[in-house]
């Protein structure tokens, strides 16, 4: 990563931390939901700079789009203020610091960013890149990995998404029928 990308990433991460602290300190839940939208957009920017464009895409669609709408729907059902409950900040801070230190310690074993010797680039990626054109016959490597090499995995994912879609349709259809019930209007 060159110095320009590093600087952009550093600044975006500072913004991210500032947004997180602001969300934690806010009492107004609506403002918190709004700041969470900003948080998602910022992390999507960080992902783009880190070259994980597909992750950034999902983060922007789910985090900034759907999650904000879900939070707003929840606020509409519950209320916009929250009661402040007594918490022990020192104990929580200690826990977060320990977990964070453990995670940072865990990253020491990871290969460096963009390392060609990383295990992920050694195992099957070479074969996918060199032979998937002959073996599968699709010019796009990503498509042949998803649809052929990992075909069962993709089939399982599609089944899960299909089930979720049926569940959502059942929920929506049930509530609509109840609302048009003539006994409800009185």
């Amino acid at each position: 990563m060159d110095i320009g990308s590093f600087l952009i990433n550093a600044i975006l991460l500072v913004f991210l931390a500032a947004t997180a602290i602001a969300v934690a300190r806010l009492q107004n839940l609506f403002a918190g939901a709004m700041l969470f939208g900003i948080y998602s957009l910022l992390s999507a920017g960080v992902f783009v700079v880190l070259d994980a464009v597909d992750v950034a895409f999902t983060e922007a669609a789910v985090g900034a789009g759907i999650a904000t709408i879900l939070m707003l729907s929840t606020i509409a059902l519950t209320g916009i203020k929250h009661e402040s409950i007594p918490i022990r900040p020192l104990r929580s801070l200690l826990l977060v610091a320990v977990v964070g230190a453990a995670l940072i310690y865990g990253t020491f074993d990871m290969p460096r960013f963009g390392d060609a010797e990383a295990p992920a680039h050694q195992h099957v990626a070479l074969r996918y890149l060199q032979q998937s054109g002959d073996e599968i016959g699709i010019p796009n490597v990503v498509t042949s990995v998803l649809a052929s090499y990992r075909g069962y995995d993709t089939l399982g994912e599609v089944a899960v998404i299909f089930t979720a879609g049926i569940g959502v349709l059942c929920l929506l259809g049930g509530s609509r029928r109840r609302r048009t019930d003539p006994a409800d209007k009185s």
């Binding site: 500032a18 403002a31 700041l35 900034a64």
Partner: peptide, 28 residues
């Protein structure tokens, strides 16, 4: 971000989020 953090009314915050989205588009 400063406007979104301080913003006295909710409309300030809505506008801040919207324009922050535009900034993200620009920076990408």
């Amino acid at each position: 971000l400063a406007r979104a953090f301080m913003g006295p009314t909710v409309y300030d915050r809505i506008l801040a989020v919207n324009s922050f989205g535009t900034k993200t588009v620009l920076i990408i």
